[in-house]
């Protein structure tokens, strides 16, 4: 197939792919441009001059509620969810390489966790806390509710990793007298490190952007997505776009550095192998 000449089909499909990418990124680029509106500019084109007015506006506390505080909480929560997702998914992934009692129910629970509507998890966790007389908080109930969304992705990635994992490396380590812990620490973990970075990326970004599961579980203090959602109903200036552009840029930086780290690890390995 490789050597065959590129057909008309190829160009049609490539064109379709290009259009889809435009569809995917077009709106984001549009608001990025519009967030540089002049002070008198509106929510749509034309641009009325250009300025950093709306970005500056973002940091005036009276205008956009608790932007700084919610950002801080979202970052902390994202970090907590990320670490937990990596550790718990890795651990469960290792368990699934063996047989254990309840592996089938746990698998279906994982799938259920993905398909049960977010608002239901949010409502359920909220009700459970209130019925038990506990207060909901972003670091407790919202943290748990978000894990029901990130852990399934983590475990599915571990499945993909371990189904391609060659056990002869471990056998070799064991034959050389390594303990199980040493084998995990010095053989398995370094091999799967790039995939763990991927799991971390899922854990952080999905938590950082989660709305529905946090809505009824965050308690008194908002996370960033809740703050943004509240803004959509009462703010009609480009400050909304400035906030959108800022958080998207931040996401891009996180995603970019994660992918770059994975790429660097892989390249080093390829070099060493050569």
């Amino acid at each position: 197939m490789n050597e065959r000449k590129r057909t008309l089909g190829f160009y049609l499909l490539a064109g379709f792919f290009g259009l889809y990418v435009l569809f995917l990124y077009g709106p984001t680029i549009t608001i990025a441009v519009l967030s540089f509106q002049g002070p008198n500019g509106g929510l749509t084109f034309p641009m009325n001059g250009h300025s950093l007015h709306w970005f500056a506006n973002l940091f005036e506390p009276q205008l956009v509620g608790d932007f700084g505080g919610s950002l801080e909480r979202s970052l902390l929560l994202g970090a907590m969810v990320m670490v937990t997702t990596v550790v718990v998914s890795l651990s469960a992934g290792l368990a699934y390489r063996k047989r254990f009692k309840g592996d089938t129910p746990l698998f279906y629970l994982t799938v259920a966790s993905l398909v049960v509507p977010s608002i239901l998890v949010s409502l359920g966790v909220g009700l459970m806390f209130s019925q038990c007389g506990l207060d909901t908080a972003w670091y407790g109930s919202a943290f748990g509710a978000q894990l029901t969304w990130t852990l399934p992705f983590g475990l599915l990635i571990m499945f993909a990793v371990f189904s391609r994992f060659n056990p002869s490396y471990e056998e070799a380590a064991r034959d050389l007298g390594a303990s199980s812990w040493q084998t995990l620490r010095h053989v398995v973990l370094p091999i799967i490190a790039p995939s763990l970075l991927g799991v971390a990326l899922f854990g952080f970004t999905l938590s950082y952007d989660e709305f529905a599961r946090t809505l009824l579980t965050a308690g008194e203090d908002n996370t960033l997505p809740l703050e943004i959602f509240a803004m959509t109903t009462n703010i009609t200036t480009p400050v909304l776009y400035a906030l959108g552009t800022l958080t998207t840029t931040f996401s891009f930086v996180v995603i970019g550095s994660c992918i770059a780290a994975i790429a660097i690890i892989q390249r080093r390995r390829a070099k060493r192998a050569a």
Partner: peptide, 16 residues
Amino acid sequence: PFWTSNIIRMISWIPF
């Protein structure tokens, strides 16, 4: 885009 905010992605349709 899956790793970025859904709400922002929805808002992004307004100027379009």
